[in-house]
Amino acid sequence: MTVSPISTQTDGDRFWNALGKTFILSFLVCLAIVVIYPLLWMALSGFKTNAQIFNEPFAFPRSWGFDNYVAAWNQGVRSFLFSSLVVTSASAVCTVLISAWTAYGLSRSRMPGKPLITAMILGGMMLSPTVALIPLVRMMQSLGLYNTHWALILLYTAFRIPFTTFLIRAYMLDLPADLDEAARMDGASEGQIFWRIILPLCAPIIVSSVILHVLFAWNEYLFAMIFTSAQDVQTLPVGLTSLMAKHGTNYAQVFAAMTISAMPIVLLFFAMQKYFIRGLTEGIGK
C-alpha cells in the first residue's frame, strides 16, 4: 500500500519532467528562430529587389544574383572593408604585443612601484572612451592624425591595452615561477625568457586576446565616427551609416552591405569559438 503513492508520484514527476523538457526545448528553438531569422532575412533581402522587400518581405528572393552585393561592394564597401582590415589588424598586433610585454613585466619581474603601475594600467578599464572624446579630438588634430587610420589604430590600442593586459597577466600569474628560474640558470636573458618561454606558453590566451580585440575593433563606432571623415579612411560601422544616408532608398543594397560587413566576424566566431569563450570567461571571471 505504501508503494503505490510513491510510484504514482514518480509517474507524475515523469509526466511533469517530460512536459517541462518539451516546453524548454520548444522555448529554446523559438528563441533561436527569433535570433537567427532577422539575420537570415537581412542576408536574403540582399538578393531581392527594392519592390520585393516592400511588397513581399517574407518571401524568398526570386533569383540569387549577386547584383546588390556587387553594387554595394563598388559603392564603398570595398574601401570600408579595407580600412577595417588595416585598422583591426594593426591595432590587434600593437595591442597584444604591448599588453603581453606589459603583462610579463607586471607578473614576472620585480619592478619598482609595481602596484601603482598595475593599478594605473588596469584602472584604464574603468574609464569610458566617451569621457575622453572631446580632448582627444583636439589632441589628434594637433598631432595631425585626424582622419587617418593611425588615429584609430592608436586609440584602439590605448583603450584595449588595459583589458588585454589584464587577461594576459592573469594567465601569466598562473604559470609556475620555476620556468623562468630554470631558464635563468641556463643563462637566458629576460628578453629570451619572454620570447622563447613565456610567450609561447601563453599562446592560448594570446589567441583569445587577439580574437576579442578583433571583435572590438571590427565593430567599434564612436571613435571611428568622430575621427574619420573621408570615405577612404572610414571603417565598416561608420561607412555603413554613410552608405545608408547616400543610398538609403535602395534597401536591397544596404542589406547586402550589412551582410558583407557582418560575415567575417560571424565566420571567425564559429571557427574560433573555443578561444572566444576562453577570452570571455577569463575576462569576466577573474
Binding site: V137, Q141, N147, S229, Q231, S242, A245
Partner: peptide, 23 residues
C-alpha cells in the same frame, strides 16, 4: 582633386567637425 561628398543631412555635422579640427 579630393572630394568629400556629404548629403544634405550629414554636411552640417561634417562641416563642424572639420572646423573644430582645423581641417
Amino acid at each position: 582633386v579630393e572630394l568629400i561628398q556629404e548629403t544634405d543631412d550629414s554636411v552640417k555635422g561634417k562641416t563642424k567637425t572639420l572646423v573644430a579640427t582645423n581641417s
